[in-house]
Computed example of a mutant assay.
Amino acid sequence: MIRGCLTGIYENDVAGAVGTLTLDGGDVKLQASITDATLATGPSLNGLSLSVIKPASFVIDYNLPKKDVKFQFMNSVRVMERPLHMTYTHWKNENRTALDGTLMIDQAHKVSANYVLDSGNCKLRYSYNPDGLTTVEPSYDFGSNAWDLSVTRMVHANDVVSASYQSSSKVLGFDWRRITSSNGSFKVSATMNLDEPSKIPTLTAESTLNF
């Protein structure tokens, strides 16, 4: 089965697009992805990547313009009868490796960590979802000594609103996302830099079509 996804992005009168085409061959999927850089100046190989995916097991991405390969491996174990999901990611050209882990304490609580090897950069995130509708996620970046906070709320069956704040950049953000049907969705976002005197928000609209 072949599945496609095309997202149109509109930001301050600038339009772009992101697209994926996935061939589902059973356990392993083949995927081709393009970014808005590919469509902005006409068809080209800029922003084109090819992927081999086995869900919950591994992802291998090849970026054609950069001739770079990214390896990602996933695994899950149980720690004190609680699931721990781990992800290992390596970028070949950058010679950079990252480790991600998420510990599910219970249905309402989980803790996530991201660590980049040889950098000392570690990010810790706590997620609290008491009712299945509202999620509060504070996080702390030990590398930059900065904290972030996001709050997400499912308003109706198809509507999700969220707010976020990044202390390092002092950017305040708001999102509203609606799943119109099984074939598509759209999202409207607004971001504001509180350090700027004008404090004029940047508006972004995205419309996604699945086929």
Rank of each mutant, 00 (worst) to 15 (best):
A108S: 13
Y126W: 10
V116P: 12
N114G: 09
V111N: 07
T97R: 14
D131S: 04
D131G: 01
V116W: 09
K110C: 13
C122R: 03
A113N: 01
I105E: 02
A98N: 12
A98K: 15
K123Q: 14
Y126S: 04
D100Y: 11
A113W: 00
N95A: 14
D118K: 09
A98C: 13
H109V: 13
E94C: 08
T97L: 08
Y128H: 01
V116Y: 13
N114C: 04
T102R: 06
G132H: 03
M104A: 15
Q107H: 12
D118H: 07
L99H: 07
Y115N: 08
L124M: 06
Y115A: 11
A98V: 12
D100I: 05
N95S: 11
D100A: 13
E94V: 13
T102M: 08
R125S: 06
D106I: 08
I105H: 03
S119M: 13
N114T: 05
A108T: 13
D118M: 08
N93M: 15
Y115M: 09
G132Y: 02
M104K: 14
H109S: 10
G120D: 05
L117F: 11
S119V: 10
N95C: 07
Y128R: 00
Y115S: 14
K123F: 12
D106V: 06
S127C: 09
N95P: 02
N121L: 12
S112Y: 04
N129F: 04
A108Q: 13
R125V: 06
C122Y: 06
T97F: 14
I105V: 12
P130L: 01
L99P: 04
D100M: 12
Q107M: 09
A98P: 11
N114W: 02
N114L: 02
A108Y: 09
Y128A: 01
Y126G: 03
G101P: 00
Y128L: 01
A108C: 11
G132R: 02
R96D: 11
L117E: 04
N129H: 05
T97V: 13
V111I: 11
Y126T: 06
D118W: 14
A113H: 01
K123P: 05
R125K: 11
V116F: 15
N95K: 15
A113T: 01
S112D: 04
D106R: 07
K123C: 07
